[in-house]
Design a protein around this nucleic acid. Structure first.
Lengths: 313, 313
DNA sequence: TTTTATTATGAATTTTTTTCAAGTATTGTT
DNA sequence: AACAATACTTGAAAAAAATTCATAATAAAA
């Protein structure tokens, strides 16, 4: 009668409040979701939610099923993980590197969860920018690299995690703060505060300044997100940071954020792994865990398509 | 990944010990079950049971999923029942009659369970043979009749419960006890002990004696199964009873049982309901509960096809 | 009221599930 | 140990179900 996919659909419908967004998250069309729910309501002979309202509201029956989903879905996840542990060897190594400092915010809880499930897996991570992580991954010194700048390297495959919006953080009193979006030219007289990495590894250059041939007046480095934002708030410059990393500081009114270009920019964060390791149970579980942590903890991110990244050459 | 149907399949596979019997219970071909499990093992990349043994044995992974099923399936059933209660009115009437005395054995636990789930439904039942139950059902005096002898009555539909084998109970020392099966002619010199109903309502006449044109030497009535078996054990006659009703007495060696005719006879027990009531949630739930109780408690019964009975005219 | 965004629906298409038919393996029997 | 009987596997065909596409209907926002 009722199926697990129904519980998943209802759960994300509850989270999103609309069919169309549910469809996006589940990588289906809105039509498919509509058909699926109609079919289920037909089987149960019972309305599950009230359509003529936004956000959608659930009936008692719908709520009862949400309740069921909350019980059942974690149980199923646990069982699947256990089975994966029994089957594949449950020991292994997971050494990872993060190209983006801010990522620690969501990576920490994900790693904690993972350690509980796979105590035998040897965990290690580094975020230093003292070496190039993708070649290290290729060599086998690393097993997973979190990057927003995938390179077409033989034997490396990229699994999309989520989409985010690189934005510009400004002091509330900054001369650009009145604009609803920032143009590349605006930055030619500004001090840009970045993480201490080469320009080529920074979204704001790759996707915004370099294509327009603009350079900021001055570049200044800072190690920590919080330090960058203190500098911004103190009027020492502006900073390019992902929207989800800015969220809590925006709420506290430390700074304001503006999108880059009229339409804004969307970029995708990937987990890079060696192709031959991609099927390994604990790796897959780590990535699954990481994604679910992101969508729980971060505001403003979107689901990525399941597709591998497209390389021009 | 894993679906509810998989959990159901694994559960009944555990109960039956073979794919072929699992298939029968789930109303599928054995091939379908084989494909389904192979597909699941492929998805999990993991063997769930060891094929080269009968009865089939589960791997640790298989056992883990059985465990999951045991947690999850009842939760789902409860939720579905709750939804049914919310949607349809949760009050109503369920007056039933049983044509077969022995049926109390499995009906009692089913009724107990049902009362817990649907406290608002007014329950009543009678097993007297003082009136014809099917016309009473048609009139609306009853809501459900348990019968093994469906009549083609306009507006009445029959839902199969299970298949059983009417058998002949004999004293261990009876002159026919050495035969592996009973022929109609054998009974022409015997005293047949039956429930106090007309011959036309008894399986042993309908399906065995009447077609062969044989009558027993004498007919004697008894109210209770246990009383009938005491009479049989005391050599006062023989009795026709369903195999599942005899099971516990056979184990205690009170009596022996022989099948009717060389191939034995199989008959189906039905729940008769008024067509317009058939869709009602609590009725459907009662029948579902009854069936599951039967298969838990009774030995020797088989699943019935989902088909309505076939009437010759 | 018009516009925009969301949801519903029917038909076409794709994917999945099931059955059929035939082959292989296992068990139990003589 | 060979035989039959029963149970399971497998690939292809058929049937059923899910998904998409195109479009209509509906609700919210401007």
């Amino acid at each position: 009668m009722i199926e697990i996919k129904h519980l998943k659909t209802l759960t994300t419908l509850n989270a999103t409040g609309s069919l169309i967004e549910t469809a996006r998250q589940l990588h289906l069309t809105q039509s498919a979701i509509s058909h699926q729910l109609k079919e289920l309501e037909g089987r149960l002979n019972c309305a599950l939610f009230i359509r003529k309202s936004r956000p959608i509201r659930f009936t008692v029956s719908g709520l009862r099923l949400l309740d069921l989903a909350e019980q059942v879905l974690p149980q199923i996840n646990n069982a699947e993980r256990d089975v994966a542990r029994f089957c594949s060897g449950n020991a292994g190594r997971l050494h990872m590197a993060i190209e983006c400092h801010s990522c620690f915010q969501w990576l920490m809880p994900a790693i904690d969860k993972f350690r509980d499930s796979w105590p035998e897996v040897e965990l290690d991570f580094c975020s230093g920018f003292s070496f190039l992580p993708l070649p290290a991954l290729k060599r086998g010194d690393l097993d997973l690299v979190v990057t927003s700048d995938p390179q077409p390297i033989e034997g490396i495959s990229y699994i999309p995690l989520f989409c985010y919006q690189p934005m510009l953080a400004l002091s509330r009193h900054h001369r650009l703060a009145h604009k609803s979006y920032i143009e590349a030219e605006d930055l030619s007289q500004e001090t840009l505060i970045t993480y201490p990495v080469e320009k080529e590894r920074l979204d704001i250059f790759n996707l915004f300044l370099t294509p327009e041939g603009v350079s900021p007046a001055k570049i200044r480095h800072a190690d920590l997100t919080l330090m960058m934002l203190q500098l911004v708030a103190s009027g020492r410059g502006v900073a390019g940071l992902p929207n989800w990393a800015l969220f809590e500081y925006l709420q506290k009114d430390y700074v304001v954020a503006r999108r880059l270009g009229k339409e804004g920019i969307w970029n995708t964060l990937y987990a890079a792994v060696r192709e031959e390791q991609q099927g390994m149970a604990y790796l897959q579980d780590f990535i699954k865990t990481a994604i679910s942590c992101c969508f729980k903890d971060l505001k403003g991110i979107k689901v990525a398509s399941t597709e591998a990244p497209y390389f021009e050459n």
